[in-house]
């Protein structure tokens, strides 16, 4: 299905966030995720079902002022 991942439209096979991280080769540490502008706690990643058209943001810490 087609989702928007970090601003880019991508085709994914994953049906939940944990599967998506594996599919896209993310390490599971130091990440936070929002789906459709709602933050999904780490404990809910595997229970969060993804749907076509979802907007997913995966963010990590970076240098900033």
């Amino acid at each position: 299905m087609l989702v928007v991942l970090n601003g880019e439209r991508v085709e994914i096979a994953a049906r939940n966030l944990t599967a998506l991280l594996s599919e896209k080769d993310y390490e599971h540490t130091n990440l936070a995720i929002a789906v459709n502008q709602r933050v999904v706690p780490r404990t809910a990643w595997s229970d969060t079902t993804l749907n076509s058209g979802d907007q997913i943001e995966i963010i990590t810490p970076r240098q900033g002022g």
Binding site: E27, N30, G64
Partner: peptide
Amino acid sequence: VSLRRESAGGRIG
């Protein structure tokens, strides 16, 4: 610190 979209599998962050 800041937050950025991560496209490198989380390794940079």
